[in-house]
């Protein structure tokens, strides 16, 4: 037995709920133009956050960490060329101030921060600042020194500083043996692609964090693309020497027996031939390649 009042109430509830969801979808479709102002940081100082979070400090650190990751992800995938990332460092700073041993936040945060333009914020300086903070709280942790060395090596091209940090890392307890060789390799072959390859491979094998692994795979693919381009350049030289003219397309090289098929980059996008020189397709997500490794 259901009274008319209840039936009416149920009907209202269902119709209104469906309408609300529909409007919600509509409103979501009208994505507000990215505000000229950033989403607010409610608290302006990590110290204040530390005091306010009382006994929920670790949880608060996690909340800030999640905000940092979501923020990074949504900025990176947002349409439009220029990425702002203005809140990335503050969010990471809050997170690591609330939980000073939050190692993933330091390491992964440093990778997020130093990622170059246009995809990333291009702030290796802030990455180093974050890692230095981690080292202040946990001086014995070799990973932070290693990560600093890495930022110096890969993003700042400061091989001497990189070697120094590798050495520091190697001296710390529990440091793996390969760190010692790493310092030597860095000094001897500053800017060397093999050294870079070795670094990224270590990062790939040594990390348990998917994001770090993904980043390592990506950079290893870039290095392989650089190798590929060198090899292709050699083939083009050989073709030019043999045919007396530069190739007009990859087919020339295939017909000449120098290539088996149209060459593709590590992400399976074909390379292009521009004015007799090989290059990544503009469609390739590996762009832009790190520039300085162009020649050996």
């Amino acid at each position: 037995m259901t009274s008319p009042a209840i039936r009416a109430a149920r009907l209202i509830a269902c119709v209104a709920f469906a309408t609300a969801v529909g409007l919600n979808v509509t409103a979501a479709g009208m994505a507000r133009p990215r505000a000229t102002t950033e989403a607010p940081l409610w608290l302006q100082s990590p110290d204040v956050a530390r005091r306010l979070s009382l006994s929920f400090r670790d949880l608060a650190a996690d909340v800030y960490w999640v905000r940092a990751v979501v923020y990074y992800g949504s900025e990176r995938l947002a349409p439009g060329g220029e990425k702002r990332y203005a809140l990335l460092y503050p969010l990471l700073d809050f997170s690591t101030s609330l939980d000073q041993r939050f190692d993933v936040a330091y390491s992964l945060g440093a990778i997020f921060l130093s990622e170059g333009h246009p995809g990333g914020p291009g702030r290796p300086d802030l990455a180093l600042q974050l890692l230095a903070k981690g080292r202040r709280y946990e001086p014995e942790r070799w990973q932070y020194a290693h990560d600093m060395a890495f930022v110096h090596y890969w993003w700042l091209k400061d091989f001497r500083a990189a070697a120094t940090h590798f050495e520091e890392a190697a001296r710390l307890p529990a440091a793996p043996l390969w760190l010692r060789t790493m310092a030597a390799v860095t000094l001897a072959k500053g800017g060397d692609r093999d050294a870079a390859r070795q670094l990224w491979t270590q990062l790939l094998d040594g990390s348990e964090v998917d994001w770090i692994k993904r980043s390592a795979v990506f950079h290893l693919q870039q290095i392989r693309a650089l190798d590929d381009l060198d090899a292709l350049r050699g083939l083009i030289e050989r073709f030019t020497a043999r045919a007396g003219r530069p190739p007009s397309s990859w087919d020339d090289l295939v017909r000449a027996g120098l290539l088996r098929a149209v060459p593709v980059d590590p992400q399976e996008v074909p390379y292009v031939l521009q004015n007799g020189a090989p290059a990544l397709s503009p469609a390739s997500s590996l762009l832009p390649l790190p520039g300085h490794e162009a020649g050996r």
């Binding site: 009907l11 509830a13 269902c14 119709v15 209104a16 709920f17 609300a20």
Partner: peptide
């Protein structure tokens, strides 16, 4: 607003 109406309807039911 429609969400509020839906909640009120459900509350009444």
């Amino acid at each position: 607003v429609t969400y509020a109406v839906a909640l009120l309807g459900a509350a009444a039911a």
